[in-house]
Amino acid sequence: MKGELTKKKVKRIKVDLDKCNGCRACELVCSAFHAKPRYSSINPARSRIRVVTDEINDEYVPIRSTDYTKAACDGRRVYTIKGKEYSECSFCGTVCPTRDLFKDPDSGLPLKCDLCEDDPPQKEPLCVQACSLNALTYEEMEEEVEEEKKLSEMELGLKSLVDRYGVEKLKDSLARISKKHSCRD
């Protein structure tokens, strides 16, 4: 079952790690833009983009916050790129419990990148404007995307599970899992 194809404006920020000089101007301006009133205060800890930095390892990875998750992933994968080791967390924008990245330092609430939505719109998100080295570049394009793709993917997955285990078993498991979930809450 396929979702309907629709035209949609897709926005994205591309990151060229080799161009980053680790200056964190992106963090600074992001925090300024999202301050209330706008630009009135600076606080990189409140930024929606953070440069994961480890000087000794020559590691500078600007990542933007994406989704919020209650549970941490196992996060144990390590990648070697040009002889340097990176934890997979260095590339992950998820707001997760294992680190203080992308959480408001006072309230602990997740901070999510909104690509500097504004009215009238900014010509580019602020971090891109501030990154004079073009480590961050902005792209906007019309793309055909499948609407509701996630849902159909889930349905597909469920169907395959039903095929394998039968409806009754799946129902039981679902009931157990959802009970566990509510206990954890």
Partner: peptide
């Protein structure tokens, strides 16, 4: 480690000046 705000007296004007300065520095 610090996660507090630094407040700016004339935010919008200073920000505008700084965006230009940053570009000039790079170029």
């Amino acid at each position: 480690r610090g996660t507090k705000e630094i407040n700016i007296a004339h935010p919008a004007e200073l920000f505008d000046v700084c965006i230009k300065l940053r570009k000039k520095i790079a170029e």
